[in-house]
């Protein structure tokens, strides 16, 4: 069993509105799985089904090879997009309460909390009320509460919203460390740069349907356009450009480079290899920049959503 979580053709309707239409995903153990999609695509519904907040109309969800059972909530840590804690409750008391609801004993929860509070350097917040903390501070508490019971599966819905870059980085490192310690992470976001940084698998949900999924690198390969970003130096720029245009499809390019002579995006066809292009270029001018244009997650996201 290599997949921790398997959802098999899950459908869910609210009245006449179909929120999920036969969506299947498989989340490999130890991966960081990006659940992507525009607003209202059905990501949150799927997450809620995994958390057993709502039940699917059709389809099954399996955790670690077993159909979802109420006991499984101990194995899942969930950070919802809509953050919230009891405002007038003290930080420590609240964290203890929430940990106990997840099935931890009080003493165990206490020692784990101490570990996390020390780690994030927030020990002196224990007796503060949530309403006395800033939004970012409260989110830190919420993060701790989510991961405290060492769940096998962590579900983060937009974990970085509300954090400053320093804290966002801190949380990102913690997520990576948790993954290294064996947790599997489902990560739902719109922020593609964090997808790029963190995720190894993604699934894209659009208008209640899954339209794309797989390893991020595989998908990128699938979406590659065989385009190369090229920077050239030559005394006779116009002649060089004309010569290239003659042989290849050329698009304008913008990138930062110390030299600012000729900047081009050159698309080659299947038959041509990158070496062919490079040797052609070296014969005509001096090459100081040569990179394959890899589609960003952002590009893939926009392109796929638009095409559907």
């Amino acid at each position: 069993m290599n997949d921790l979580l398997v959802a098999d053709s899950v459908s869910k309707s609210f009245g006449s509105f179909k929120a999920l239409n036969e969506v299947s995903i498989a989340v490999p153990k130890g991966s960081i799985f990006g659940l992507l999609g525009p607003n209202g695509a059905g990501k949150t519904t799927l997450i809620r089904i995994i958390n057993q907040i709502t039940m699917p109309d059709e389809g099954t969800v399996q955790l670690d090879g077993q159909p979802l059972k109420p006991e499984h909530i101990r194995d899942i840590g969930y950070l919802p997009e809509e953050r919230g804690l009891y405002k007038s409750m003290k930080v420590g008391e609240q964290a203890l309460y929430l940990a106990q609801l997840k099935g931890m004993s009080k003493s165990e929860a206490k020692s784990r909390l101490k570990y996390w509070f020390d780690k994030l350097d927030i020990g002196d917040w224990w007796n503060k009320k949530i309403q006395e903390l800033s939004k970012g501070q409260a989110q830190k508490i919420q993060f701790v509460v989510t991961v405290l019971h060492r769940p096998k599966l962590l579900i983060f819905d937009e974990p970085f919203s509300g954090f400053d870059p320093i804290n966002a980085n801190l949380i990102k490192d913690e997520i990576l460390q948790l993954r290294d310690e064996g947790a599997t992470v489902i990560f739902s976001t719109h922020r593609m740069e964090s997808v790029e940084e963190l995720c190894d698998h993604i699934a894209l949900i659009h208008k209640s349907n899954k339209i794309l999924d797989g390893k991020l690198n595989d998908i990128k390969r699938q979406y590659r356009t065989n385009t190369f970003e090229v920077g050239l130096q030559s005394n006779n720029s116009e002649a060089v450009i004309a010569e290239i245009k003659n042989k290849f499809e050329v698009l304008p390019a913008t990138f930062k480079n110390l030299n600012d002579d000729i900047k081009l995006n050159i698309k080659i066809n299947e038959a041509t290899s990158s070496n062919d292009l490079l040797s052609f270029l070296t014969s005509t001018a001096e090459v100081n920049h040569f990179v394959e244009v890899i589609p960003t997650a952002n590009d893939i996201f926009i392109q796929t959503v638009k095409n559907n």
């Binding site: 958390n51 909530i73 969930y78 919802p80 809509e82 919420q142």
Partner: peptide
């Protein structure tokens, strides 16, 4: 209502019935 407005309900409801 307080649990709804403070949005903690989703956390709680993912732990208890």
């Amino acid at each position: 209502i307080e649990e709804k407005t403070s949005r903690i309900i989703e956390v709680i409801i993912s732990s208890v019935k």
